[in-house]
Amino acid sequence: MSVRDDLAERVGVDLEAVDPLRVALYATLVGLVAFYLSPLESGLMTALKTEAEFATSPPFVPPTVEGFTLEPFGVAIDTLSSAILNSIMLAVPATVLSALFGSFAAYGLTNFEWRGQLGVVALFIAGIFIPYQAVLIPLSRLWAIVDTQSLLAPVLDITVFSAQVPVLGTVELATHPHYASIINLIITHTAYGIPITTLLFRGYYKKLSTEMLEAARLDGAGAFTVYRRIVLPLSMPMFAVTLIYQFTQVWNDLLFALIIIPSGSGPAAVATIALNELTGGIIQTFNTQMAGAFVAALPTLLVYVLFGDKFAKGVAGGT
């Protein structure tokens, strides 16, 4: 309310007056909403139609009673559920790890003063901007050489992981050697996520009061204690932003998954790969494709709808 008044005043517009310019403004805004939502809306409508229906009715029109079906969603969920589980197993640890590493790095590079620091910072930040094509071949070589499964065998038999998941029953979380590649993917995403998370946390830590951190030092706290008892508790809002942003990044990635998961598809496929497989067929079952797109995008859409403001903050801060 106050923000609105503030803005209204700033541009000199009386919000209550009916002004042709104002009408045009809202018309434009609504038109743009139509533009931004139309692919989603027509996608959703298509996903709810039978094949006969979507071939004959305009894409944005809701299905008729006889043309309505939930079958595409059924097919999509069946096809994608294990890949979505894989994506969760990938995105959650990769996101948390890169956020933690980013927070460590940002603390070490912001709240201390030493020569050459900016050079290290520059290397971190430049890491945000590298095109991943420049590392693809080494990555595929690296993970061909490193046999994660054998390396982990003494500590963790990853071939027999299983868990009880509500709704889905017993899920074999790992019943295939390919699951080692999920671990490879976690490590890879963690590493490439560090630059952006470091940048996000650094922007935040720069604003922390230097005197407060000095006070803690004089109170007898070492660098680790200052981090654990002062900096970490104060970074919780930034953790929310970073986790949300990084989660969508990892979830949405296709390229690393293509390279690191050997056969592309298979039981280790993540959501983006599985969706691409599902929709890449010759037969144009657009209703199933659209349903698949919604199912695969659901976690990020949920995160976005629930925490949109934090996501926007991550987006604006990540520049």
């Binding site: 009061s209 005197e211 407060m212 006070a215 030092r217 004089l218 109170d219 007898g220 706290a221 002062i230």
Partner: peptide, 15 residues
Amino acid sequence: RDRDIAMVFQSYALY
């Protein structure tokens, strides 16, 4: 931490 001093800052520097 080993100097046995306490400091009061201009900004108070409270946690």
